[in-house]
Design a protein around this nucleic acid. Structure first.
Lengths: 196, 196
DNA sequence: GACAAAAACGAACGTTCGTGCTTTTATAGG
DNA sequence: CCTATAAAAGCACGAACGTTCGTTTTTGTC
């Protein structure tokens, strides 16, 4: 790997972390320059535009998420164990990767919903893929006989996302100390309902 | 009511709507000046600072929410009917009040979680109050015998908030056409679980 | 209508924004 | 070490930001 690529990766690592705290809007070129110690122009050399920086930041975060959450979960046996692994990895992926602001995708979702452009498009694609991952895992649980055969797996994915969104809010804005207890109770209820 | 107060109310109405779309960050003095047709200085005359504008905007939205969601729901008979009313009113409060960007509190929550200050503090208070409203309604349903007597009403409130957060995301970012169907299925499951 | 107070404007300010372009510095390969 | 290329800096720009302050316009009361 050459210097440019190494620098670029280092920048994206910091950009991802910063964006998880201050959002993509707060990820200004100037703010990032301060954090990386590079000049603004130097950053532009790597990314060309703020929009592209945002897109690349989301891409970097997606890779991280895939490596730390999705792929390891898919290595677990199908059915409820896989789902449990996915859930636990989702819960801890931010802290395990050093993201100080929680799940960057949730933060970005609120920001980008009224901002058409490449970043929004990319994010929407990722959410759809993520929904598909959950849906397939739920289907696997049905096939293994863990979940009832008439489960609406799309609804399951929808409900699991509810849980993630609510958790971020409870943990981040409200600083609920019992947010982990609550989110687990929500998840267990969803799993229980999927069995009956 | 004097001219100043009438103007102020008109500004807050527009600020609330704008903030529901672009968030409190996007509610810049310049942006609001453009929307209201006032000068920036004129707006400062009313609010004194951007932070105060944000706080007053949240207050105006809270009043609206109370008038349109909470108070009418509390007028319905206790128990599940009241809960149903609260849910339906939550679902429609943005469109019924002309807020084009969905629930301003959810938008603000993502923005303010890393921004200490008066606006954040106000928002946190409001969420806690809202949680209390839900918790009490759930307790009423327990007392009326609609819900089982060992229901954890705090968890109920937590779960209902999950539903609201997930819905905003599905409707706004993902533009899911079936978001209303999904959110209702989520709610019905929560109610069903609370009965058993 | 007079007049004081309120409402609103306009100009200015320093800061930050995203971006472009030239110059300087660092890297990589022979 | 040399040299071409890549990486980065520095400077500049116009626009937007939040805010201040003096001036103008409007309002409300007598």
């Amino acid at each position: 790997m050459q210097k440019g690529e190494r620098t670029r990766q280092a920048i994206l690592e910091q950009a991802t972390n910063l964006a998880s705290v201050v959002g993509l809007d707060g990820l200004s070129i100037g703010n990032l320059a301060t954090h990386t110690g590079l000049s603004k122009s130097g950053l532009f050399g790597h990314f060309g535009s703020k929009e592209n920086l945002q897109v690349e930041t989301l891409k970097a975060a997606s890779s991280l998420f895939k490596d730390r959450v999705v792929v390891p979960a898919l290595a677990v046996e199908r059915g409820v164990p896989r789902l449990n692994e996915l859930f636990e990895r989702w819960l801890s992926w931010d802290t395990n990767t050093g993201l100080e602001g929680g799940c960057i995708f949730i933060t970005a979702s609120a920001e980008l919903d009224d901002k058409p452009g490449q970043a929004r498009d990319f994010l929407v694609l990722r959410w759809r893929e993520w929904n598909e991952v959950i849906r397939r895992i739920a289907e696997g649980a049905v096939e293994r006989g863990h979940f009832r055969s008439d489960l609406d797996c799309t609804q399951f994915a929808y409900d699991l996302n509810n849980i993630f969104f609510g958790f971020q809010h409870a943990a981040r804005l409200l600083g609920n100390e019992d947010a982990y207890k609550r989110v687990r109770a929500s998840f267990e209820r969803l799993v229980r309902d999927s069995k009956r």
